[in-house]
Amino acid sequence: MNGITLTLRALHHGERSLAKQLSTAAERHHTEHEVHHVAQDLVLWSNDHCRRVAETGRHYELDLDGPPEKSAPGLVSTLREKSAEAVGRRPEPGLLLLHDLRELHLAAAGNSLYWEMLAQAGQAAKDDRLVELASFCHPRTLRQMRWTNTLIKTLSPQILTSV
């Protein structure tokens, strides 16, 4: 296990976990329609990153899974969506939304820094495979961060001054 494989593992874990957080946020904020729909679109990017890291990992003797299979809506996710609808008429979930967006942003920022490390390591090691992987995925991670930042900027004036 060297620094490169450690970084690949960390990215694999980070993208899987961001995908999961995005899915959970999409369910929990079912009544915030833009968050609900775009978060699901962004899951696709993290899943794709996960797949690409796993593929690349094979060249470094890593055996990493692909993204989790999309399961049918289970009890927990249905419960999350129903509870979102139940409190959809109340202002307090707005604070939870800002909290979740912040967590998503930090998770994406964590991944972004790993992509930075991987790209640097790839350049130092003259390893084109790593540089290509990072230069494909990193811009999308930055776009995930800009999305959460934009939503926080747009929504917080209303949410924080009305509760």
Binding site: H33, R89, T154
Partner: peptide
């Protein structure tokens, strides 16, 4: 001008959520 002017769908959401 601290945020983009609010679009209609978001206004209805603010009305739904009570703010």
């Amino acid at each position: 001008h601290y945020a983009p002017p609010t679009h209609a769908m978001q206004m209805f959401r603010y009305a739904e959520q009570g703010s």
